[in-house]
Design a protein around this nucleic acid. Structure first.
Lengths: 246, 246
DNA sequence: CGCCGGTTTGACGGCAATCAAATCTAGTGG
DNA sequence: CCACTAGATTTGATTGCCGTCAAACCGGCG
């Protein structure tokens, strides 16, 4: 029932070595981190952390995708973050979790016991600086998302989400075609709705509309082809390039 | 025409000494900051920074209120942050500003030239840690706001904004009556609308409705009395206490 | 084959946006 | 001191987008 613990592997071979909170660490620092780290795997759909629970670890997503959500008492749900490989989970210096974290796909986490991590961070500027940098990036992303949530139409919201996912895929894939893009949606329609502040019916309708208008092509429910990225960005209401091309 | 530069004063007497980015600094560190700081005053309504401009300083709001906004080409505007005394402006390590920063009231900023500040931060963990802490707080606030923008009704949005402003006032005012609260709105109806992802007409209507229903009392347009804070929090859709009372 | 979760599509209604006009408030100058 | 003006706010009438409720569809799996 419980997710298995995978065997430790070497930080040098870690797929997120150069992007996670440990990105700036030298080999000595890495050794210290290694001493307090352990891996843990969560099955798709399983909660990783529940809002309000006290957390005894922080850590990085090594592989897979997880969501950060907030809910109201009556069940209304808003996603407030999407966690991808290298993203950091948990807040040093705070005990209780502020959000629900749920594995969307199978997720492997590199966990650090919280106390030792905090102590290590206090004497290791490389870690603290990297964490600051990552937090500032997340803050920017959250603020960009506030514009989407507050001011964009349903159609623009969907286009915004698709372009963000496409951009992210592009950053992993070595520079390929900028015009045509192909990717798999890592989210259900309901998760997309929770991300965008819509209902799943509206998400479905707008996906169909974008397909009908030739902005996207769909194979099955999840496999998306964007024939013209510029067109998608226009639909998202961003400037024609959005810092994406050129 | 140009805002006057006020004369420097001693950090020891600074009203935000214990809450700003310098909160953890000892007297030596304060002296180093003092060497690169200067004060600057902006009149109400004046832009402090324009999105895309390159910034040659970072700094703290000493007094007054400023807004952080994003806009789309067609003019749709979303506020993404409200800057109060002690809040930090600017991002170390980045040249261009990502948002518009506008003074809502007269604002006094304690500015640091960016390069020297970055260098100082690199060798002063007290500053880096405090900035991380403040950034994490802002990230939490932004995520809380995403729930408001994405999932709350107009009435709940207004109640949420009022309770946030009330809470903030309470944190300044020494613990007074928790039940009844009185404060002045620092924002116009339009700014409230930009914060909440609404139109100013809807803001006005909902303010009138909350007044009619006895949730708030208004004296003039800006002076608000909340007779029962618990009631307001209910209207905001938060748990009955919202971490505010008790 | 039949169930089940995820998804699509349809019909309808409501909440907030839009368009428009009245009212209030604070300056300004006569 | 008061009329006048500009900006902020309130209020009203109407529209339309998106949410709600409901039913059909689809693919996968026991």
């Amino acid at each position: 029932m419980t997710a298995p613990t995978i065997s430790s592997f070497n930080c040098g071979d870690c797929p997120i070595r150069h992007r996670a909170v440990c990105a700036r660490c030298d080999s000595d620092e890495l050794e210290e981190l290694d001493a307090i780290k352990y891996y843990r795997t969560y099955e798709a759909g399983r909660p990783i952390i529940w809002s309000g629970d006290s957390m005894n670890f922080v850590g990085s997503v090594v592989s897979g995708i997880a969501t950060l959500t907030q809910t109201m008492e009556d069940g209304r749900t808003q996603m407030v973050g999407l966690l991808l490989p290298s993203d950091f989970v948990g807040r040093p210096g705070r005990d209780g979790a502020a959000y629900n974290v749920v594995a969307t796909t199978e997720v492997v986490m590199c966990c650090f016991r919280k106390k030792p991590f905090e102590e290590l961070m206090a004497r290791t500027p490389h870690i603290a600086h990297r964490l600051l940098e990552m937090t500032l990036d997340e803050l920017d992303a959250a603020r960009e998302w506030m514009l989407v949530l507050g001011r964009k139409t349903a159609r623009e919201k969907i286009a915004s989400l698709l372009s963000i996912i496409a951009r992210r895929d592009a950053s992993l894939t070595p520079a390929g075609a900028k015009d045509r893009m192909v990717f798999d949606l890592p989210l259900t329609r309901e998760a997309m709705a929770d991300y965008l502040g819509l209902t799943l019916e509206t998400v479905s309708r707008q996906m169909s509309a974008l397909k009908k208008d030739g902005v996207i092509e769909l194979e099955g429910k999840r496999h998306v082809t964007v024939p013209d990225m510029g067109r998608l960005l226009e639909e998202a209401g961003d400037d024609s390039d959005g810092g994406f091309l050129g």
